[in-house]
Each structure stands twice: as C-alpha cells, then as structure tokens.
Design a protein around this nucleic acid. Structure first.
Lengths: 243, 243
DNA sequence: TTTCGTATAATTGTATACAATCATACAAGA
DNA sequence: TCTTGTATGATTGTATACAATTATACGAAA
C-alpha cells in the first residue's frame, strides 16, 4: 500500500493541531464566537492547553475553509456571512447537488440504494408521527448517502466545503413543521428517479430540492435563522457526520 | 472601514509564509515536483532561506487547497490526480461556469461588458493570424472577466479553487490549433447571450463550453497532457492573474 | 539467505524565545 | 478641543530547541 492510497482525513484529529482545528471549527459553527470576533492565539492556546504553534497552523486551515479571516500582523476574525452569501451558497449547492444526484444514478451500489430507500420510508414514518428531530437527522443522512453514492471525491470535497457554511445557517430550516415532510417527499422523488436510472430527472429534482430548501428558509426568516447565535433550538447537531 | 471590509487575499504574499505558499503552489503546478513526491520541511526551508515554521503553515494551506497531502508524522506529498478526477473537475466546473454566466448576465457592468466584447474581437483577430499565445491569454482573461462579472465572492472562490487543479492539466488544451478559435467562437456566443440578457442561454452555453473544452482535451490525449511534467511547451503561464 | 530486533539517524510535532508590527495611551503643541 | 508624535504594551511573525515518531542500517538468530 502506497502512502497516497491511505484514506486520509483532511486533517488528523489526534495531533494537537488537529484537535485545535476541530475544536475551533465546532465552536465557530455552533456560535460560540460572534461574527467578526477576534481570535487570539495565546488565548485559544491557553484555553486548550497548547502553545501558539498548533493554534497558528489551525488558523491557517480555518482561513482556507472560509471560517476565519486572517489579516497579516493584525489578527484572525470569524468570517461574516451576508444574506447574499447565503443565497449564493444555496444556488451553487443546488447545481452541485444536482450533479451529485446524476452521478449517484450512475454509480450507486445496491447497499446504498437500500439505505436510501430505508431512509426515505423511515422518514415518512417519523413525519407522520411529527418526530422532527429524527426527521432532521434522516435528512442529513440522506444527503450524505447521496454524496457517497456519487463516487467522486472531488464533488464530495466541494459539497463538504459548503457544508461548513451551510451548517451555520441551516439550523432552523427543518425545524419548520411543514418543511420536514415536504423535504422528504422530495427525497422520495429523487430516490425514485435514481432507482429508475433517470439521471436527468434526478439531477433536476435534486437541483429543485435545494432551491425549495432555500426558499423555505427565506420564507421563515433567514435573517433570524443565521443571525441568532445561541438559539434555544439546537436539536440539529452542528456536526452530522455518520459514525 | 472595518477590518472585515478590507479586500483580503486568501493569503498575503509579503510574509515569509505567504511567499513560501505561493512559491510552492507555483512549483507544484508547473510540475517542478513529481506527483507523490515528498516535500521535506527543512529542504524547502533551506531552499527559500526560511525556517520550518512558515513552511509548515504553508503546507497546511496547500493541503486544504488539495495540492499536497499531509500524513501525520510522516510527510507531505504532492497530490496525485487521476483521469477520473480530471473529468469530475471539468464536469463540476461546467455547472459552476454556467451559473457564473447566469449571474454575470444579471450583474455585469458596462465596463466589464466592454472588456468582454473587446476580448472576443481581439481574440478573433489573433485567431485569424494564428497567434496562439495571445489567444490563450485572452481565453484565460475571458473567464476572469466572467468571474468578476458574476459578482459573487462565493462562486469566484469556488471557481478559483478549481483553477488550481485545472492549471495542472490544461496547459496543452489550447495549444491545439483548432480549439483556440473554436473556443473563442463559443466565448462570442456566451458574450452575446449575456449582452442580450438571456441568462438561461448564457448558462447553457457556458456549461457546454466547458464540456467541449474537456472533450477536446480528451481527444488530444489527456494522458500526456497531464502526466508530462516539464513539457517543452509552457507558453501558457501557470499563473494567469491579470496585473 | 531470510527474518527479526535494536540502535541510530532523519523527520515531523510542539514549545518557547526573540523580532517585527500594530494598538493604545498620553502628553505637547496648535 | 483637536491633532499629532512618541512611548509602551500587546499581538503576530519567525527562528530555534527539544520531544516524539518514523525510517534506515546492521547484525544476530533461525
């Protein structure tokens, strides 16, 4: 096995730098830090019990992920996201999710198809019972399945990049009682298109699915959704990675 | 003026770390290092006359840009790109370029429109005279104009991310005598669609433009194009940023 | 000869010291 | 009062020392 064949996380979680990186990312996404808040190297270091070196390296990564902005010789600041940014993100993502659905149609395995079907029908069940928490988790998982099924590490990388932003604005989207079931209905149609091998339709549906999600969010008050830092909700965990 | 309003490069070019970052990026893209070649901190540092600290920070950024891969406690390796990756990149980019053209239709300024027209007609001139070098530069510039005109820092960021990869495989694409003029014809149609305010058509044309570019590349031997590290060509400079 | 273990070297990970830059406070002058 | 220059402290930028980990060489045993 060559070194480059090793399945490698973007950053390891077991070095100090890795831990700092993940901790800061989670804190930023969860709203611990205000937008435009300055992050000081020594303060972060002391809080986590490490020196400045790993903190600085983590900063450089967070900068490229778009979560903070570093101004030379001044400091590191939590990135602000405007409403236009949010809209752009969703529109970009709609294209990529569409492409993802297309490729998923071409590359999905039987196991992935099975899990997707299970996901949709399970979500239908929870929707009927009004269990929004489970519904939200299944929603996240549906998209993860889609990412895996598209079988493109490039596209997956892109979509996960956006995930960083999206998580900051998405918290309340599915909290709306109407969107959850509606979202799942759309998942079902996407799933059926994939199963039928209709890539064009799958792309179109996944594309529209994102746009609907965005429009729903706007309708329900985008502003509060992403301005509010420590909302009383939070049933949607920031990191929805599967185990 | 608030600190976060400052137009800020992703990374500054005047710190040692910034210089290391840009130098390494250029070297990787230009093919100075083999794929999967190991980059050692001290060696790079000595070559550039700096210590390991800025080199390490640059490494972390290059990793997130996808140009190198860092394996904990082992080393940093230049990322390998498979043929499938290349295809994926072009397909993803086709969607994003399409979206970019759509937004450009909605947001382009008069100055940008003028420059785009000038670009196309100038390219027509060079195409007629068979001046491929100028043609290639104008081609790059056309896309830069498009990126600026779309007026979305999010999309611009995404497209520039891909640029890193694309530059590694693109060198020879336009060297083909046929593709240059053909490419410009497509630019012209995109330009006309934007000018006519037809966003749907602009998106569709820009989308197809990318796919054509990819198919042309495949037709002319993708493999050599991106495997070859120190080709005798090189009239297409790796960094095509405007001055 | 091959395999394994150990010693040594090489390399990365982290902490810290020092330099450079920036922010702030305050006083002098207009 | 307002502006401006300077001094001081705070913060980031870089170099270096040391620790931890990994790679390599080499010899002993099977």
């Amino acid at each position: 096995m060559n070194h480059y064949d090793v399945k490698q996380e973007v950053t390891d979680k077991y070095s100090l730098r890795g831990r700092v990186f993940h901790k800061l990312r989670e804190d930023i996404l969860s709203g611990k830090y205000e937008e435009h808040e300055e992050l000081r190297e020594v303060a972060i270091g002391e809080e986590l019990g490490v020196s400045r070196t790993p903190v600085r390296e983590a900063f450089r990564q967070l900068e490229l992920e778009g979560l903070i902005q570093i101004i030379p010789n001044k400091g590191a600041y939590v990135t602000g996201i405007t409403e236009k940014d949010v809209k752009d993100i969703y529109m970009i993502r709609s294209r990529l999710e569409g492409l993802c659905a297309r490729w998923a149609t071409e590359h999905i395995t039987k196991e992935q198809m099975d899990e997707m079907e299970e996901n949709v029908y399970l979500a239908e069940f929870h929707a009927a019972k009004g269990q929004l928490e489970q519904l939200a988790e299944l929603d996240n998982r549906f998209h993860d399945i889609l990412y895996e099924a598209c079988d493109s590490k490039m596209l997956e990388h892109q979509l996960k990049d956006f995930h960083q932003y999206v998580l900051r604005v998405r918290k309340k989207t599915l909290a709306n009682v109407n969107r959850g079931p509606k979202s799942n209905e759309e998942h079902k149609k996407i799933m059926e298109a994939i199963k039928a091998g209709n890539a064009d339709l799958a792309e179109q549906l996944a594309h529209q699915h994102m746009i609907n999600a965005y429009e729903n969010m706007v309708k329900n008050g985008l502003h509060e959704a992403y301005e509010q830092r420590t909302g009383s909700d939070g049933f949607l965990r920031p990191d929805t990675k599967k185990s």
